[in-house]
Design a protein around this nucleic acid. Structure first.
Length: 453
DNA sequence: AGAGTACCCTGCTTGC
DNA sequence: TGCAAGCAGGGTACTC
Protein backbone atom coordinates (compact mmCIF):
# COMPACT_ATOMS: atom_id res chain seq x y z
CA UNK A 1 0.00 0.00 0.00
CA UNK A 2 2.10 2.86 -1.23
CA UNK A 3 2.03 6.01 0.87
CA UNK A 4 3.97 9.23 0.38
CA UNK A 5 7.50 7.74 0.75
CA UNK A 6 6.76 4.82 -1.54
CA UNK A 7 5.16 7.05 -4.15
CA UNK A 8 8.11 9.43 -3.88
CA UNK A 9 10.53 6.54 -4.40
CA UNK A 10 8.56 5.43 -7.42
CA UNK A 11 8.53 9.00 -8.72
CA UNK A 12 12.31 9.28 -8.47
CA UNK A 13 12.90 5.94 -10.14
CA UNK A 14 10.40 6.65 -12.90
CA UNK A 15 11.74 10.11 -13.59
CA UNK A 16 15.28 8.78 -14.00
CA UNK A 17 14.11 6.31 -16.58
CA UNK A 18 11.32 8.20 -18.35
CA UNK A 19 12.35 11.87 -18.55
CA UNK A 20 12.38 12.92 -22.18
CA UNK A 21 10.63 9.80 -23.46
CA UNK A 22 7.95 10.37 -26.10
CA UNK A 23 4.84 8.20 -26.07
CA UNK A 24 4.32 6.26 -29.29
CA UNK A 25 1.33 4.21 -28.27
CA UNK A 26 -0.82 3.36 -25.26
CA UNK A 27 -2.94 0.30 -24.54
CA UNK A 28 -5.52 0.12 -21.77
CA UNK A 29 -6.57 -3.42 -20.92
CA UNK A 30 -8.94 -2.64 -18.08
CA UNK A 31 -11.09 0.33 -18.93
CA UNK A 32 -12.35 1.44 -15.49
CA UNK A 33 -8.76 2.17 -14.48
CA UNK A 34 -8.92 5.32 -16.64
CA UNK A 35 -11.47 7.55 -14.97
CA UNK A 36 -13.99 8.94 -17.35
CA UNK A 37 -11.92 9.42 -20.48
CA UNK A 38 -12.42 7.47 -23.65
CA UNK A 39 -9.78 9.29 -25.70
CA UNK A 40 -7.09 8.80 -23.05
CA UNK A 41 -4.83 6.83 -25.42
CA UNK A 42 -5.05 9.11 -28.43
CA UNK A 43 -4.43 12.24 -26.36
CA UNK A 44 -1.24 10.71 -24.99
CA UNK A 45 0.27 9.73 -28.32
CA UNK A 46 3.08 12.10 -29.30
CA UNK A 47 3.37 13.60 -25.79
CA UNK A 48 6.81 13.84 -24.19
CA UNK A 49 7.36 13.30 -20.47
CA UNK A 50 8.94 16.52 -19.23
CA UNK A 51 9.15 15.49 -15.61
CA UNK A 52 7.29 13.55 -12.96
CA UNK A 53 5.97 15.30 -9.85
CA UNK A 54 4.16 14.07 -6.79
CA UNK A 55 1.51 15.50 -4.50
CA UNK A 56 0.38 13.38 -1.58
CA UNK A 57 0.02 9.87 -2.92
CA UNK A 58 -0.57 11.04 -6.49
CA UNK A 59 2.01 10.80 -9.26
CA UNK A 60 1.87 13.62 -11.79
CA UNK A 61 3.36 12.92 -15.21
CA UNK A 62 3.95 16.36 -16.70
CA UNK A 63 3.59 16.15 -20.49
CA UNK A 64 3.58 18.77 -23.25
CA UNK A 65 -0.16 19.47 -23.14
CA UNK A 66 -1.47 17.28 -20.35
CA UNK A 67 -0.85 16.12 -16.85
CA UNK A 68 -1.40 12.41 -16.41
CA UNK A 69 -2.36 11.66 -12.80
CA UNK A 70 -1.74 8.18 -11.47
CA UNK A 71 -2.95 6.95 -8.10
CA UNK A 72 -1.68 3.51 -7.13
CA UNK A 73 -4.20 2.95 -4.34
CA UNK A 74 -3.42 -0.42 -2.76
CA UNK A 75 -1.31 -2.37 -5.19
CA UNK A 76 -0.48 -0.32 -8.27
CA UNK A 77 3.05 -0.90 -9.57
CA UNK A 78 5.16 0.19 -12.54
CA UNK A 79 7.57 -2.00 -14.48
CA UNK A 80 9.89 -1.28 -17.38
CA UNK A 81 10.05 -3.63 -20.33
CA UNK A 82 8.17 -6.41 -18.62
CA UNK A 83 6.11 -9.07 -20.33
CA UNK A 84 2.37 -8.64 -20.27
CA UNK A 85 0.52 -10.73 -17.67
CA UNK A 86 -2.97 -10.94 -16.28
CA UNK A 87 -2.37 -8.01 -13.91
CA UNK A 88 -1.08 -5.66 -16.58
CA UNK A 89 -3.77 -3.03 -17.13
CA UNK A 90 -2.00 -0.27 -19.03
CA UNK A 91 1.05 -0.30 -21.31
CA UNK A 92 2.89 2.79 -22.58
CA UNK A 93 5.17 2.31 -25.58
CA UNK A 94 7.89 4.89 -26.21
CA UNK A 95 9.67 6.06 -29.35
CA UNK A 96 12.89 4.71 -27.83
CA UNK A 97 11.51 1.18 -27.92
CA UNK A 98 11.05 0.92 -24.17
CA UNK A 99 7.76 -0.01 -22.56
CA UNK A 100 6.24 1.02 -19.23
CA UNK A 101 3.61 -1.31 -17.75
CA UNK A 102 1.13 -0.55 -15.02
CA UNK A 103 0.24 -3.56 -12.89
CA UNK A 104 -2.49 -3.70 -10.30
CA UNK A 105 -3.65 -6.96 -8.75
CA UNK A 106 -6.80 -5.53 -7.27
CA UNK A 107 -7.48 -2.97 -9.99
CA UNK A 108 -8.00 -0.19 -7.44
CA UNK A 109 -5.57 2.28 -9.00
CA UNK A 110 -6.77 5.09 -11.27
CA UNK A 111 -5.47 7.30 -14.08
CA UNK A 112 -6.71 10.72 -15.01
CA UNK A 113 -5.70 13.13 -17.72
CA UNK A 114 -6.14 16.88 -17.34
CA UNK A 115 -4.88 19.96 -19.14
CA UNK A 116 -1.34 20.76 -18.08
CA UNK A 117 -2.36 24.29 -17.10
CA UNK A 118 -4.16 22.77 -14.08
CA UNK A 119 -1.08 20.92 -12.87
CA UNK A 120 -0.70 22.90 -9.67
CA UNK A 121 -4.35 23.33 -8.79
CA UNK A 122 -6.25 20.26 -9.97
CA UNK A 123 -5.65 17.90 -7.05
CA UNK A 124 -6.39 20.53 -4.47
CA UNK A 125 -9.53 21.76 -6.21
CA UNK A 126 -10.97 18.46 -7.38
CA UNK A 127 -9.72 15.93 -4.85
CA UNK A 128 -9.52 18.28 -1.86
CA UNK A 129 -5.95 17.15 -1.47
CA UNK A 130 -4.12 18.99 1.30
CA UNK A 131 -0.42 19.82 1.36
CA UNK A 132 2.23 17.27 2.28
CA UNK A 133 3.37 17.57 5.91
CA UNK A 134 6.63 19.16 4.69
CA UNK A 135 4.69 22.07 3.22
CA UNK A 136 1.92 22.37 5.76
CA UNK A 137 2.11 25.17 8.28
CA UNK A 138 1.55 24.34 11.91
CA UNK A 139 -1.25 26.83 12.49
CA UNK A 140 -3.34 25.42 9.61
CA UNK A 141 -2.70 21.87 10.79
CA UNK A 142 -3.61 22.71 14.38
CA UNK A 143 -6.83 24.48 13.39
CA UNK A 144 -7.87 21.54 11.19
CA UNK A 145 -7.26 19.06 13.98
CA UNK A 146 -9.12 21.17 16.51
CA UNK A 147 -12.22 21.53 14.40
CA UNK A 148 -12.75 17.81 13.98
CA UNK A 149 -14.78 15.55 16.17
CA UNK A 150 -12.70 12.65 14.91
CA UNK A 151 -9.85 10.62 16.31
CA UNK A 152 -6.34 11.82 15.59
CA UNK A 153 -5.63 8.66 13.59
CA UNK A 154 -8.55 9.39 11.26
CA UNK A 155 -7.36 12.97 10.97
CA UNK A 156 -3.84 11.92 9.94
CA UNK A 157 -5.36 9.64 7.30
CA UNK A 158 -7.66 12.37 6.01
CA UNK A 159 -6.07 13.57 2.77
CA UNK A 160 -8.01 16.82 2.90
CA UNK A 161 -6.17 17.75 6.12
CA UNK A 162 -2.68 16.48 5.40
CA UNK A 163 -1.52 14.71 2.26
CA UNK A 164 0.39 11.49 1.82
CA UNK A 165 -0.02 9.71 5.15
CA UNK A 166 -1.53 6.22 5.05
CA UNK A 167 -2.08 3.58 7.66
CA UNK A 168 1.53 2.47 8.18
CA UNK A 169 2.95 5.93 8.75
CA UNK A 170 -0.05 7.11 10.78
CA UNK A 171 0.66 4.30 13.23
CA UNK A 172 4.36 5.15 13.35
CA UNK A 173 3.84 8.89 13.70
CA UNK A 174 1.41 8.46 16.60
CA UNK A 175 3.78 6.07 18.33
CA UNK A 176 6.70 8.48 18.07
CA UNK A 177 4.45 11.29 19.28
CA UNK A 178 3.27 9.19 22.26
CA UNK A 179 -0.35 9.92 21.42
CA UNK A 180 -3.16 7.39 21.65
CA UNK A 181 -4.62 6.76 18.17
CA UNK A 182 -8.19 7.21 19.39
CA UNK A 183 -7.55 10.57 21.03
CA UNK A 184 -10.06 13.10 19.83
CA UNK A 185 -8.84 15.91 17.61
CA UNK A 186 -10.24 18.64 19.84
CA UNK A 187 -8.14 17.35 22.75
CA UNK A 188 -4.89 17.73 20.82
CA UNK A 189 -3.11 20.84 22.05
CA UNK A 190 -0.80 23.10 20.09
CA UNK A 191 2.31 21.42 21.45
CA UNK A 192 1.04 18.00 20.43
CA UNK A 193 0.06 19.26 16.98
CA UNK A 194 3.61 20.51 16.59
CA UNK A 195 5.02 17.15 17.73
CA UNK A 196 2.76 15.33 15.28
CA UNK A 197 3.73 17.52 12.37
CA UNK A 198 7.44 17.29 13.19
CA UNK A 199 7.28 13.52 13.55
CA UNK A 200 5.30 13.23 10.32
CA UNK A 201 8.05 15.04 8.46
CA UNK A 202 10.76 13.07 10.25
CA UNK A 203 9.20 9.65 9.61
CA UNK A 204 8.32 10.36 5.99
CA UNK A 205 11.74 11.81 5.19
CA UNK A 206 13.52 8.88 6.79
CA UNK A 207 11.31 6.45 4.86
CA UNK A 208 12.06 8.30 1.60
CA UNK A 209 15.79 8.01 2.36
CA UNK A 210 15.35 4.27 2.71
CA UNK A 211 13.27 3.94 -0.46
CA UNK A 212 9.97 3.35 1.33
CA UNK A 213 8.55 0.43 3.24
CA UNK A 214 8.39 -2.95 1.55
CA UNK A 215 5.39 -4.66 3.06
CA UNK A 216 3.43 -7.21 1.08
CA UNK A 217 4.02 -6.29 -2.52
CA UNK A 218 5.55 -2.85 -2.70
CA UNK A 219 8.47 -2.33 -5.00
CA UNK A 220 9.48 0.43 -7.36
CA UNK A 221 10.87 -0.61 -10.72
CA UNK A 222 12.47 -3.58 -9.03
CA UNK A 223 13.86 -1.55 -6.11
CA UNK A 224 12.72 -2.56 -2.65
CA UNK A 225 12.40 -0.17 0.28
CA UNK A 226 14.20 -0.65 3.57
CA UNK A 227 12.06 1.31 6.00
CA UNK A 228 10.24 -1.78 7.30
CA UNK A 229 13.36 -2.49 9.35
CA UNK A 230 12.72 0.72 11.25
CA UNK A 231 9.04 0.21 11.90
CA UNK A 232 8.24 0.45 15.60
CA UNK A 233 4.62 -0.60 15.79
CA UNK A 234 3.07 -1.26 12.40
CA UNK A 235 2.62 -5.00 11.93
CA UNK A 236 4.34 -5.59 15.28
CA UNK A 237 1.47 -6.87 17.41
CA UNK A 238 2.92 -8.95 20.26
CA UNK A 239 6.42 -7.48 19.84
CA UNK A 240 7.95 -5.50 22.68
CA UNK A 241 7.92 -1.72 22.63
CA UNK A 242 11.48 -0.43 22.16
CA UNK A 243 10.78 2.41 24.56
CA UNK A 244 9.06 0.74 27.54
CA UNK A 245 9.05 -2.99 26.92
CA UNK A 246 5.29 -3.36 26.97
CA UNK A 247 3.63 -5.40 24.24
CA UNK A 248 2.42 -3.68 21.08
CA UNK A 249 -1.25 -4.34 20.46
CA UNK A 250 -3.41 -4.29 17.38
CA UNK A 251 -6.97 -3.00 17.35
CA UNK A 252 -9.46 -1.97 14.69
CA UNK A 253 -10.15 1.74 14.56
CA UNK A 254 -12.80 2.69 12.03
CA UNK A 255 -12.00 -0.48 10.12
CA UNK A 256 -8.26 0.20 9.96
CA UNK A 257 -5.68 -2.02 11.59
CA UNK A 258 -4.19 0.15 14.32
CA UNK A 259 -0.99 -0.70 16.18
CA UNK A 260 0.17 1.06 19.30
CA UNK A 261 1.90 0.71 22.64
CA UNK A 262 -0.68 0.86 25.43
CA UNK A 263 1.90 2.20 27.88
CA UNK A 264 3.55 4.88 25.75
CA UNK A 265 0.29 5.90 24.09
CA UNK A 266 -1.75 5.96 27.21
CA UNK A 267 -5.49 5.69 27.64
CA UNK A 268 -7.28 6.71 30.83
CA UNK A 269 -10.16 5.24 32.80
CA UNK A 270 -11.98 7.99 34.65
CA UNK A 271 -14.54 7.19 37.30
CA UNK A 272 -17.26 9.81 37.43
CA UNK A 273 -19.19 10.28 40.64
CA UNK A 274 -21.23 12.77 42.59
CA UNK A 275 -24.02 13.00 45.11
CA UNK A 276 -27.76 13.35 44.71
CA UNK A 277 -28.61 16.44 42.62
CA UNK A 278 -24.95 17.41 42.27
CA UNK A 279 -25.03 17.33 38.46
CA UNK A 280 -23.29 14.05 37.70
CA UNK A 281 -25.89 13.06 35.10
CA UNK A 282 -25.51 16.41 33.36
CA UNK A 283 -21.79 15.82 33.12
CA UNK A 284 -22.31 12.27 31.92
CA UNK A 285 -24.73 13.40 29.20
CA UNK A 286 -22.39 16.14 28.08
CA UNK A 287 -19.55 13.64 27.75
CA UNK A 288 -21.72 11.29 25.70
CA UNK A 289 -22.75 14.18 23.48
CA UNK A 290 -19.10 14.95 22.88
CA UNK A 291 -18.62 11.39 21.68
CA UNK A 292 -17.01 9.82 24.73
CA UNK A 293 -17.86 6.37 25.93
CA UNK A 294 -19.49 6.38 29.35
CA UNK A 295 -20.28 3.10 31.12
CA UNK A 296 -23.35 3.47 33.29
CA UNK A 297 -23.26 1.25 36.36
CA UNK A 298 -26.86 2.07 37.34
CA UNK A 299 -28.08 1.13 33.90
CA UNK A 300 -26.20 -2.14 34.16
CA UNK A 301 -27.98 -2.90 37.43
CA UNK A 302 -31.37 -2.00 35.96
CA UNK A 303 -30.64 -4.37 33.11
CA UNK A 304 -29.81 -7.12 35.58
CA UNK A 305 -33.37 -6.97 36.83
CA UNK A 306 -34.68 -7.44 33.29
CA UNK A 307 -33.34 -10.96 33.42
CA UNK A 308 -35.93 -13.37 34.81
CA UNK A 309 -33.36 -15.84 36.19
CA UNK A 310 -31.71 -13.01 38.06
CA UNK A 311 -35.02 -11.81 39.49
CA UNK A 312 -35.96 -15.29 40.66
CA UNK A 313 -32.55 -15.74 42.27
CA UNK A 314 -33.01 -12.50 44.22
CA UNK A 315 -36.61 -13.34 45.07
CA UNK A 316 -35.48 -16.64 46.53
CA UNK A 317 -32.66 -15.13 48.59
CA UNK A 318 -34.91 -12.49 50.11
CA UNK A 319 -38.14 -14.48 50.11
CA UNK A 320 -39.93 -11.80 48.08
CA UNK A 321 -42.23 -13.52 45.63
CA UNK A 322 -45.29 -12.21 43.88
CA UNK A 323 -46.98 -13.96 40.94
CA UNK A 324 -44.06 -16.32 40.60
CA UNK A 325 -41.73 -13.37 40.10
CA UNK A 326 -39.76 -10.94 42.22
CA UNK A 327 -41.84 -8.61 44.38
CA UNK A 328 -39.86 -5.41 43.98
CA UNK A 329 -41.82 -3.47 46.57
CA UNK A 330 -41.32 -6.11 49.18
CA UNK A 331 -37.62 -6.32 48.39
CA UNK A 332 -37.30 -2.53 48.66
CA UNK A 333 -38.93 -2.54 52.04
CA UNK A 334 -36.71 -5.39 53.29
CA UNK A 335 -33.60 -3.59 52.14
CA UNK A 336 -34.71 -0.24 53.51
CA UNK A 337 -35.53 -1.50 56.97
CA UNK A 338 -32.63 -3.84 57.57
CA UNK A 339 -29.00 -2.89 57.09
CA UNK A 340 -27.95 -6.53 57.17
CA UNK A 341 -30.19 -7.33 54.24
CA UNK A 342 -29.00 -4.24 52.43
CA UNK A 343 -25.43 -5.50 52.78
CA UNK A 344 -26.50 -8.96 51.68
CA UNK A 345 -28.01 -7.58 48.46
CA UNK A 346 -24.95 -5.41 47.80
CA UNK A 347 -22.74 -8.46 48.19
CA UNK A 348 -24.59 -9.98 45.25
CA UNK A 349 -24.88 -6.90 43.05
CA UNK A 350 -21.52 -5.19 43.48
CA UNK A 351 -19.32 -8.04 42.26
CA UNK A 352 -21.48 -8.29 39.14
CA UNK A 353 -21.09 -4.57 38.47
CA UNK A 354 -17.36 -4.77 39.12
CA UNK A 355 -16.98 -7.67 36.75
CA UNK A 356 -18.93 -5.83 34.07
CA UNK A 357 -16.71 -2.76 34.45
CA UNK A 358 -13.48 -4.79 34.61
CA UNK A 359 -14.36 -6.67 31.43
CA UNK A 360 -15.21 -3.47 29.63
CA UNK A 361 -11.96 -1.86 30.76
CA UNK A 362 -9.87 -4.78 29.56
CA UNK A 363 -11.46 -4.51 26.14
CA UNK A 364 -11.32 -0.75 26.08
CA UNK A 365 -9.66 0.89 23.11
CA UNK A 366 -10.91 4.37 23.79
CA UNK A 367 -8.47 7.08 24.68
CA UNK A 368 -10.74 8.15 27.55
CA UNK A 369 -13.23 5.77 29.10
CA UNK A 370 -15.65 7.10 31.70
CA UNK A 371 -17.31 5.01 34.39
CA UNK A 372 -20.48 6.55 35.77
CA UNK A 373 -20.57 5.17 39.32
CA UNK A 374 -22.74 7.11 41.79
CA UNK A 375 -21.50 5.07 44.75
CA UNK A 376 -17.86 4.96 43.68
CA UNK A 377 -16.34 5.61 47.09
CA UNK A 378 -18.98 3.72 49.04
CA UNK A 379 -18.40 0.52 47.04
CA UNK A 380 -14.62 0.96 47.10
CA UNK A 381 -14.27 0.11 43.42
CA UNK A 382 -10.64 0.65 42.45
CA UNK A 383 -10.01 -0.21 38.81
CA UNK A 384 -9.65 3.31 37.43
CA UNK A 385 -6.90 5.84 36.89
CA UNK A 386 -8.62 8.92 38.16
CA UNK A 387 -11.81 9.83 39.99
CA UNK A 388 -13.81 12.86 38.97
CA UNK A 389 -16.27 14.27 41.47
CA UNK A 390 -19.08 16.61 40.50
CA UNK A 391 -19.40 18.70 43.63
CA UNK A 392 -21.82 21.33 44.88
CA UNK A 393 -21.95 23.03 48.25
CA UNK A 394 -24.58 21.55 50.56
CA UNK A 395 -26.90 24.57 50.41
CA UNK A 396 -27.11 24.48 46.60
CA UNK A 397 -27.52 20.71 46.63
CA UNK A 398 -30.46 21.06 48.99
CA UNK A 399 -32.13 23.79 46.91
CA UNK A 400 -31.70 21.88 43.67
CA UNK A 401 -32.99 18.64 45.12
CA UNK A 402 -36.09 20.32 46.62
CA UNK A 403 -36.86 21.99 43.32
CA UNK A 404 -36.09 19.00 41.11
CA UNK A 405 -38.01 16.39 43.08
CA UNK A 406 -40.55 18.71 44.60
CA UNK A 407 -39.51 17.84 48.17
CA UNK A 408 -39.77 19.60 51.47
CA UNK A 409 -36.56 20.71 53.12
CA UNK A 410 -36.83 17.87 55.60
CA UNK A 411 -37.35 15.22 52.94
CA UNK A 412 -34.50 16.56 50.87
CA UNK A 413 -32.20 16.67 53.86
CA UNK A 414 -33.09 13.09 54.71
CA UNK A 415 -32.04 11.94 51.26
CA UNK A 416 -28.83 13.89 51.26
CA UNK A 417 -27.85 12.72 54.72
CA UNK A 418 -28.54 9.14 53.70
CA UNK A 419 -25.46 9.33 51.43
CA UNK A 420 -21.78 9.87 52.04
CA UNK A 421 -21.37 13.66 52.19
CA UNK A 422 -19.97 15.51 49.20
CA UNK A 423 -17.37 16.97 51.56
CA UNK A 424 -16.25 13.45 52.38
CA UNK A 425 -16.12 12.49 48.71
CA UNK A 426 -14.17 15.63 47.95
CA UNK A 427 -11.33 14.33 50.10
CA UNK A 428 -11.21 11.07 48.15
CA UNK A 429 -11.54 12.37 44.59
CA UNK A 430 -8.49 13.02 42.43
CA UNK A 431 -10.28 15.85 40.61
CA UNK A 432 -13.24 17.96 41.60
CA UNK A 433 -15.52 19.92 39.32
CA UNK A 434 -17.43 22.55 41.23
CA UNK A 435 -20.96 22.84 39.87
CA UNK A 436 -22.15 25.88 41.80
CA UNK A 437 -22.44 28.05 38.70
CA UNK A 438 -24.43 27.94 35.48
CA UNK A 439 -24.67 25.09 32.98
CA UNK A 440 -22.30 27.01 30.75
CA UNK A 441 -19.77 27.22 33.57
CA UNK A 442 -20.10 23.49 34.11
CA UNK A 443 -19.45 22.68 30.45
CA UNK A 444 -16.47 24.97 30.50
CA UNK A 445 -15.06 23.21 33.54
CA UNK A 446 -15.49 19.84 31.83
CA UNK A 447 -13.80 21.03 28.64
CA UNK A 448 -10.99 22.37 30.73
CA UNK A 449 -10.65 19.10 32.63
CA UNK A 450 -10.53 17.06 29.41
CA UNK A 451 -7.55 19.05 28.15
CA UNK A 452 -5.47 17.42 30.89
CA UNK A 453 -5.26 14.19 28.90
C1' DA B 1 -23.50 19.76 4.86
C1' DG B 2 -21.29 16.47 7.17
C1' DA B 3 -21.10 11.86 8.75
C1' DG B 4 -21.60 7.15 7.77
C1' DT B 5 -21.35 3.30 4.65
C1' DA B 6 -21.17 0.41 0.48
C1' DC B 7 -18.29 -0.42 -3.05
C1' DC B 8 -14.39 -1.46 -6.00
C1' DC B 9 -11.21 -6.13 -6.60
C1' DT B 10 -8.25 -10.24 -5.92
C1' DG B 11 -5.47 -13.15 -3.12
C1' DC B 12 -4.70 -14.94 1.02
C1' DT B 13 -6.35 -16.94 5.43
C1' DT B 14 -9.66 -19.25 8.10
C1' DG B 15 -13.16 -22.57 9.04
C1' DC B 16 -15.92 -26.43 8.18
C1' DT C 1 -8.41 -32.00 0.76
C1' DG C 2 -11.43 -28.70 -1.11
C1' DC C 3 -14.34 -25.18 -1.18
C1' DA C 4 -16.75 -21.12 0.62
C1' DA C 5 -16.67 -17.27 3.37
C1' DG C 6 -14.24 -13.57 5.36
C1' DC C 7 -10.93 -10.10 5.36
C1' DA C 8 -7.66 -6.48 3.79
C1' DG C 9 -7.80 -1.42 2.43
C1' DG C 10 -7.59 4.25 -0.13
C1' DG C 11 -10.57 6.79 -2.03
C1' DT C 12 -15.08 7.68 -4.16
C1' DA C 13 -19.92 7.81 -4.54
C1' DC C 14 -23.79 7.36 -2.54
C1' DT C 15 -27.40 7.94 1.33
C1' DC C 16 -29.56 10.08 5.21
Amino acid sequence: MPELPEVESIRRNLETVLKGETIKDVKVFYRPIVSNMMDFEEKLIGQTIKRIDREGKYLKFILDDYMMISHLRMEGKYFMDKDHDKHTHVEFYFESGHKLSYHDTRKFGRFELVDVSFKDTYLNNHKKLALDPQNLDLETFYQAIQSKNKTIKEILLDQSIVGGIGNIYANEILYLSRIHPAKKGFLINYQEAQTLLENSIKVLNRAIELGGTTIDTFESLGHKGEFQQELNVHGKAGHYCKHCGDKIIKIQLKGRGTYFCPTCQKSHVIALTGGIASGKSTVSNYLIKKGFKVLDSDLFVRNLYLDKDFRLMIAKKFDSFKDNDLDKEKLASIIFNDKKNKKKLEKIIHPLVFKYLDDEIINNYEHLLFLDIPLLFETKYKNYDESLLVYVPKKIQLDRLMKRNNLSEMEANLRINNQMSLEGKKKLATYVINNKGTLKDLYKSIDNYLLKF
